[in-house]
């Protein structure tokens, strides 16, 4: 996902009655929203964590895990904390409305709901959400390169690992570190160093695919998340990232400078044990160090504890 690509606005309905799902789908149709629905609290929670919708319409009287508990858990989870929640309540008593709002819901709608009121409340919640997203996006962008920053990469990595676990979809993490960056800075100055970082950011963005998430992870370190990508495909993508970085030339005062980077690759299918963000980053980092040790400007991958240089091994 690139910062400028708009996604359809998605609404998740969690209600134990199919007739309510159908009604909401019909009533929100004029708003051009993508509506999905779940019938109980547990499925709703799981769906919210993997899909991260823009708005949740949440029934209170759900079987087993009730709406209040779903709300509490959504607010606890980093990936779902900022999703606005509108409670759907069959009761008109003040107590349950207040309880819902205190748990972090933005609004409530009483069933049976008036269609015009439902749409107005949904629009209002989405308006606030969009402004919040804009502010948040600013705080997740790297000022120098325009790429996503580390905070964003960490957050997306956690979310994508959830998706990966739920749907059995592979996820690959690529870490890259500019070779001899200190020497570049010392020789040509920090301004030139900045130009190099911007150039590498452009090379990586240009050779990544639309679904890849490219970030500046720190000083001269970059991270790329390849969603839905197994190790075999990741090998081609990461080699392309390396080659495009190497092919760009930079003009210093009196010379043309070529800059390279070393790459480390780790895929969920080849990391053993619990698939935490830390474990994935550590595996990619180990592979990255192996590339540095091997003389830089190359790609290593982490394969069940082994560090393998590519393309040699394949």
């Amino acid at each position: 996902m690139n910062p400028e690509v708009p996604n359809p606005t998605r609404v998740l309905v969690i209600d134990d009655t199919v007739s309510i799902h159908k009604l909401i789908v019909a009533r929100l149709r004029p708003e051009g929203l993508e509506v999905t629905a779940e019938l109980d609290g547990q499925s709703g929670l799981e769906r919210a964590i993997t899909d991260v919708p823009d708005l949740i319409l949440l029934d209170i009287g759900l079987p087993r895990v009730d709406g209040f508990e779903v709300c509490r858990q959504l607010k606890e989870h980093a990936a779902t904390r900022n999703i606005p929640i509108i409670f759907l309540t069959g009761d008109t008593d003040t107590e349950s409305k207040v309880r819902g709002l205190d748990l972090g819901a933005v609004d409530y709608v009483t069933k049976p709901f008036d269609e015009v009121e439902l749409r107005a409340r949904v629009r209002a919640a989405l308006r606030t959400k969009r402004l919040q997203d804009m502010l948040e996006q600013q705080s997740f962008l790297d000022g120098l390169t325009g790429l996503w920053n580390r905070a964003y990469l960490d957050r997306r990595l956690e979310a994508e690992l959830n998706v990966s676990e739920r749907y059995g979809r592979p996820l690959t993490v690529v870490m890259a570190d500019v070779d001899n960056f200190k020497r570049i800075n010392d020789t040509h100055g920090h301004l030139f160093g900045d130009i190099v970082l911007q150039g590498i950011a452009e090379s990586l963005s240009a050779s990544a695919r639309r679904s890849d998430i490219v970030a500046r992870y720190g000083g001269e370190e970059f991270g790329v998340l390849l969603t839905g990508t197994n190790l075999k495909s990741a090998i081609y993508v990461s080699e392309r990232l390396r080659a495009s970085t190497e092919s760009r030339l930079y003009e210093a005062r009196n010379e043309v400078v070529r800059v390279t980077a070393s790459f480390g690759v780790a895929c969920t299918e080849d990391v053993e044990g619990e698939l935490s963000p830390e474990a994935m980053l550590q595996a990619a980092d180990l592979a990255l160090y192996a590339s540095k040790e091997a003389g830089r400007n190359c790609v290593h991958l982490f394969r069940r504890g082994e560090l393998v240089r590519i393309p040699g091994a394949f």
């Binding site: 134990d16 009655t17 069959g90």
Partner: peptide, 11 residues
């Protein structure tokens, strides 16, 4: 009864 209360008017 609760479900019918919530859905009836909506339909």
């Amino acid at each position: 009864a609760h479900q019918l209360k919530g859905a009836g008017g909506g339909y």
